[in-house]
Amino acid sequence: MLTEKETTVSHRSPANTSDRVDHRPKKIKRGKVAPQQRCLWRVRHRAFLPKLGIAPQQMGTLVTVAFTSLMKFLNFLKPKPAQPTILCYGQQSSRVSQEQIQSLMEWLFASLMAAEYFGKSHIIWYDDNNPDPAREQTVKKIVRSGEPVFLYRCGGKVQPPPKGYYWRMMQEHPSMRIYQLEIKDGE
């Protein structure tokens, strides 16, 4: 006679799986599906695709498009910040007074809000007497993000822009030293 423990074990054993039905096609040698079952599997899965107007070859494309659309929708639902965020690079090493920095940052915030831009933007404080190659690499990384990039010219020259871009002087600012990075036409 079996004890309760042995009964439980034998009840859970893999040999007692006759009540389970496996709907997947059975595999034969080298991982191929048996011909008679291959047809049933194809017929069953092809039945719903024409009703949706989708060819089986288009399923991968459909999944990709659906995923990107879902991600765009989820990004749309993210709460937007109430004001723009401006990240600064090289401000401490610049020769600009705190009053000028304060005035410029207020003007830049107001300009971004007037343009109804509430995302992240970047400003580079560039001194041509003390160039930093790391800032050029930083600009290249920022460009890939698609966020606005501004440059404040502390010396006589601007930082060389990344390939395919140029620095447009923002004539709206009275100092005539602030630039915005823009894509060259035709590129």
Rank of each mutant, 00 (worst) to 15 (best):
K32G: 04
A114Y: 00
W107V: 00
G164N: 12
E172F: 05
R95V: 00
G186S: 04
K184C: 10
M170W: 13
K29F: 13
C88N: 11
Q91I: 10
P35S: 05
V139E: 06
K29L: 14
Q137K: 11
S10A: 10
A110F: 03
Y166F: 15
I142A: 08
Q102V: 01
Q137N: 12
R20F: 06
K120L: 15
N129T: 14
Y89L: 11
P131Y: 08
Y126H: 14
M176I: 02
N75P: 03
Q180L: 10
T7A: 10
C39E: 15
H45T: 08
A47P: 04
V43Q: 12
Y152N: 05
P133H: 08
W107M: 01
M1V: 15
H122K: 02
Q159P: 02
L108K: 02
Q37I: 01
T61P: 00
K184N: 09
Y166P: 03
K32R: 15
P148L: 11
V149D: 11
G60I: 02
A66M: 11
N75T: 04
M71G: 01
A15N: 10
M170R: 11
L62T: 02
C88K: 09
Q102N: 02
K163C: 09
L49D: 03
E136K: 14
T3P: 00
P81N: 13
K80F: 07
I54N: 02
K32S: 07
G186C: 06
K26T: 07
N75C: 04
V158A: 12
K51T: 10
Y117E: 01
V158R: 13
F73R: 07
M59N: 01
T8R: 07
P84V: 01
I142V: 12
F67H: 07
K163I: 13
E99N: 07
Y166T: 13
I183K: 15
I183P: 11
G60Y: 03
R44E: 04
N129I: 10
N16Y: 02
D127K: 02
K157F: 13
E6V: 06
K141I: 10
Q92P: 00
D19C: 05
Y179R: 06
H122I: 02
T3F: 06
Q98P: 01
M176S: 11
A47S: 12
P56G: 09
F76H: 14
Q137E: 14
E172G: 12
D19R: 08
S94W: 05
E4T: 07
E4M: 08
G90I: 02
L108A: 03
R153N: 08
R135H: 15
R42L: 13
F150D: 03
K32W: 06
Q100R: 07
Q171A: 09
E147Y: 10
P84G: 05
Y117Q: 01
V65W: 01
T3C: 09
A66E: 13
N129M: 13
D127Y: 00
